[in-house]
Design a protein around this nucleic acid. Structure first.
Length: 527
RNA sequence: GCGGGUAUAGCUUAGUGGUAAAGCUCCAGCCUUCCAAGCUGGCUACGUGGGUUCGAUUCCCACUACCCGCUCCA
């Protein structure tokens, strides 16, 4: 591991540990040993995620005339997912190399021709050991026939109980050869036979209702693998009930489920995750242009919530790597400590989805174009963001360790979560300077009552004031409001009465402000 | 799915075939007039299940979870 990636791995460890110790993210069912690929948000994580979703909704639905929201069911009719191509085609056929155990995509193995050497087993005379398993090796033209024997011995040697026996001492049984052309069931790397191609079903399947028959195929339903399909399926209803005119969008935030083979990287790839999606319907001729516009719009959004553009990467997904229905796809990626990974895809999906559902359901999903006096199938541009991934990006982006030197020259590390105030879990902490002075405590509680109806605040009177500031730094609270002796009029001039100090998280600077102005000041900062 | 590693308190770590130590955090109290002060007291842990053993947190096996590298990510 390079120094750089070691450093990043250490950084990720710190972030994961802070998430746990401060109550952002816990492992799901931790007391039972954990559930693979599932995570729970603790009190602060829940606030953070809620804030993200609220900003997203406000920017994309509340503040726009041309986008409306919906909230579809998670349990999904199997016909919906047959039409969308998820049932049957959702996963890639995979096969494993019997020798190296490498996993390959069956549809990406190049065709090969040559001679297949087949065996029925192997034995070791001295020890009396033997195994019966058919196996074969493909040799392409010009390869040494001994290579087939060598590969086969290596394969059979993995079944040896006595690992001291050299593969070279194995006798192969019943060698036969056969010429083949354009086959794909051998590993191009080593010629070894592959397992049969298997479909990995990435959808969670369930059965609905109390069916008389076990596994009644009519009762099958799925947990949705994406939120998009419920939008397409409700396209007509939304269009008609809300008198929408092209171009317009339907937005949705909700959970989706994929039975990932290999969840990894903390919450980044998990089996249950939340998406924030817009299906923006448009005229066919505007699709490409709108895709570019949405990319820009989305980049601005990330900037708005505190993820600077220089930490984002735009991947213009090339031909052949896009989904078959997409004419253009941008991936917006973020520099996570564990690598550059996708946060959001902006995909021009053409009329593929509406067309598929129209054909499959037999119901018209057309749009009547008033100008041209004709019916068309709307095209769609889809900005689809991963909510949990964005939360993780926000946490990674916010995390900072600052070395500060005090008056005596002593150095210490200050851990600060530099969340944008808009998404910070706690907006302000209210701190009486001392807790054994009832007047201070009482005033602080009054301020808490003023702010509480409008924002999430925290009251803290435990320990020295400096400690409390640091505690708030570590959870990213942007403002600390301190009630001191000037506030209650016991010290300083009369004009300082009913003013408090506001300590800003990033600069650690303090300003004084009348209590009456607090609410307006904070609202402006957090909106 | 393969290979490698790890699992002790809320966090970070120490340690032992005879059930565990420390720092930080946290809680209570005292004190404290602005950046992790001090004092006193307190809560809390050997991932789960088997096996070996008089006795296992320690040794062995399996499982689970997490991390790293492959693989995969419609």
């Amino acid at each position: 591991m390079s120094d750089e990636s070691k450093k990043d791995s250490e950084l990720m460890k710190k972030i994961v540990s802070l998430c746990k110790s401060r109550g952002f993210i816990f492992q799901s069912a931790e007391i039972y040993g954990g559930l693979n690929g599932c995570w729970d948000y603790g009190p602060l994580g829940a606030e953070l995620k809620r804030n993200l979703k609220e900003v997203w909704w406000r920017r994309n639905v509340q503040e726009r005339d041309d986008i409306v929201g919906m909230d579809g069911s998670i349990l999904t009719h199997q016909e919906v997912l047959k039409a969308s191509g998820h049932v049957g085609g959702f996963s890639d056929p995979m096969c494993d190399c019997l020798l190296s155990k490498a996993r390959l995509r069956a549809d990406q193995i190049p065709e090969q021709s040559g001679t297949v050497y087949s065996y029925t087993g192997a034995s070791h005379e001295e020890s009396g050991w033997s195994v019966n398993k058919p196996y074969s090796v493909l040799l392409t033209e010009g390869q040494d026939p001994n290579k087939a024997k060598k590969t086969a011995r290596l394969y059979y040697s993995q079944f040896l109980t006595d690992k001291q026996i050299s593969p070279k001492k194995l006798e192969l049984t019943d060698e036969s050869t056969q010429q083949v052309e354009n086959v794909t069931n051998f590993n191009p790397e080593n010629g070894s036979l592959l397992t049969e191609a298997r479909q990995f079903d990435l959808m969670f399947k369930t059965h609905m209702g109390a069916s008389a028959v076990d596994n009644d195929p009519a009762a099958v339903a799925y947990l949705r693998p994406e939120t998009a399909q419920s939008i397409f399926v409700q396209f007509k209803n939304v269009l008609e009930t809300n008198r929408m005119k092209l171009p317009f969008g339907i937005a949705q935030i909700g959970k989706s489920f994929r039975n990932e083979i290999n969840p990894r990287n903390f919450t980044f790839r998990s089996r249950e995750f939340e998406q924030m999606e817009i299906e923006f319907f448009c005229y066919p001729e505007d699709g490409m242009k709108l895709t570019d516009e949405w990319l820009e719009n989305r980049l601005c959004f990330y900037e708005d919530i505190g993820i600077p553009r220089e930490h984002l990467h735009i991947l213009d997904v090339p031909d052949g790597e896009r989904a078959h229905y997409s004419k253009k796809t941008y991936d917006i990626e973020y520099e996570f400590p564990f690598g550059i990974q996708e946060l959001e895809g902006v995909a021009y999906r053409t009329d593929h989805d509406l067309k598929a559902h129209q054909e499959s359901s037999g119901k018209s999903l057309e749009y009547f174009d008033d100008q041209k006096k004709e019916k068309i199938i709307a095209h769609v541009v889809e900005p689809s963001a991963g909510c949990d991934r964005t939360v993780l990006a926000l946490i990674c982006e916010a995390f900072d360790e600052e070395t500060i030197t005090d008056d005596k020259g002593k150095q210490e590390i200050r851990t600060v979560m530099r969340f944008d105030p808009k998404i910070a879990p706690i907006k302000a902490a209210i701190l009486p300077l001392l807790k054994n002075k009832p007047e201070l405590v009482e005033k602080a509680r009054e301020i808490q009552k003023i702010l509480q109806p409008v924002m999430t605040v925290s009251y803290d009177d435990g320990g020295a004031i400096g400690r409390r500031y640091r505690r708030q730094d570590e959870v990213g609270t942007p403002f600390c409001i301190t009630v001191d002796f000037e506030t209650i009029g016991e010290e300083g001039s009369e004009d300082l009465k009913d003013t408090v100090t506001i300590r800003e998280r990033d600069s650690m600077e303090q300003t004084r402000m009348p209590i009456s102005e607090l609410l307006q000041f904070l609202i402006a900062k957090i909106h």
